[in-house]
Computed example of a mutant assay.
Amino acid sequence: MATPSEPRGEAIRRAGVWLARGLLAAAACSSVAWGATTLPDFVDQTRLDGARDVILRNVPISDAELDALGPALARAAARSDCMPAIDRSTAVIRLRLAENALASGDRVDARMGELDAAIHKSLGCAPADPYLWLVLFWLRNIRQGLTDANFDLLRMSYRLGPNEGWIVVKRSAMALAMFDALPPDLSGAVVAEFARLVKTELYTEAIDLLKGPGWAHREKLLAGLATVPKRNVDILTRTMADIGYDLDRRSPAERRSLEREPNFGRDELARMPSGAVARP
């Protein structure tokens, strides 16, 4: 406080200094509190995102290796607010845990329920995720069987992510495995998606699909290439011939090795959401 003899300007200056110090102290305390609150979330996100990337690259990862993420997954499930990155990573990790359960036959119902909850939480916060709509389609088919209502989930994936290459490979593999059961609009979308792969010169992906789940439907897939540049189609045809698949014949093409004939049953379909090669 100023003395009677202290100039008014000096008093104002000293008051300003004390005010600035108070504001800096308050800011420092706020920063410490903010860091203490957000640091655990940052650590969880870093760990969950790392596991998510490994899974989407189709690297085998067991339940034992994912056990350390249990507390982080539990915290993510318990949160009522939206953390889009954490929620999405949680859903992808829950998918791998569900796939592992299907493969082992252990805790299948529990893992499926956890996956369902994780997908709904993530899509509730960030609904424009074509991959998770695809996973939800797969999950509904596993738990409830293939129904007309489920096809709307696949349609959402096509609508929201028509050109994301890594999703296209997974989605096409799944859709081709059930091609005969698809309604006309979705079977048409599958054929158009394959044509886009060839048009954009993603030959490796197109070949893997064609000689795998698409082999039984090759005539329709090849007919869908009518609008694709001839150069691209020729590259696809020659490359397929080089590895033993003759697509030039008018009669159904036969493989050189019968042992390579595709067999896509329930187990293969069950692995497809995270089981195809991806580039997230």
Rank of each mutant, 00 (worst) to 15 (best):
A241I: 05
Y131G: 01
R96S: 04
R238S: 12
P60C: 07
T227H: 13
E205F: 11
R94N: 15
L19W: 05
I207G: 04
S62K: 00
M156W: 13
Y245G: 01
L134R: 03
P71D: 13
I119N: 02
D63T: 00
G124A: 03
R88H: 13
A110F: 09
A26E: 12
R255W: 13
L66T: 06
I235Y: 07
A72G: 09
E10Q: 13
T90R: 06
L154P: 01
D152K: 10
M174S: 12
D49L: 11
S257Y: 14
A192G: 07
E164A: 06
A76Q: 12
D81V: 08
E99Q: 15
S5I: 13
R249D: 07
P262Q: 14
R256T: 00
N150V: 02
A223M: 08
L236I: 12
A85G: 09
L69G: 05
F264R: 03
D81F: 13
T46I: 14
R255C: 14
D129A: 11
G124D: 07
H120Q: 13
R57H: 15
Y245F: 15
R196V: 05
L269S: 00
A276R: 11
T239D: 10
H217F: 14
A226E: 06
S30H: 02
P184Y: 01
A181W: 10
W133H: 12
V54M: 06
V17C: 01
G188T: 11
I243K: 02
A25Y: 04
M112P: 01
P252F: 08
N100T: 09
A206D: 09
H217K: 06
E193N: 15
A223L: 14
R96E: 12
G165H: 11
S274P: 04
E114T: 02
D148P: 04
E65S: 08
R159I: 00
L66C: 04
M156S: 15
D109N: 09
L19D: 09
L48Y: 12
T227S: 10
S89C: 10
L136A: 02
T237F: 13
E261D: 12
E268G: 00
P162A: 05
D180L: 14
K121N: 06
A177F: 07
R57S: 05
P213V: 10
S62A: 04
D41W: 13
W166G: 06
A36F: 01
G244W: 04
G275Q: 05
L97N: 14
P84C: 08
D185W: 09
T3E: 12
A177S: 15
V277L: 14
D180M: 06
V228R: 03
T38P: 01
M1N: 06
A27M: 08
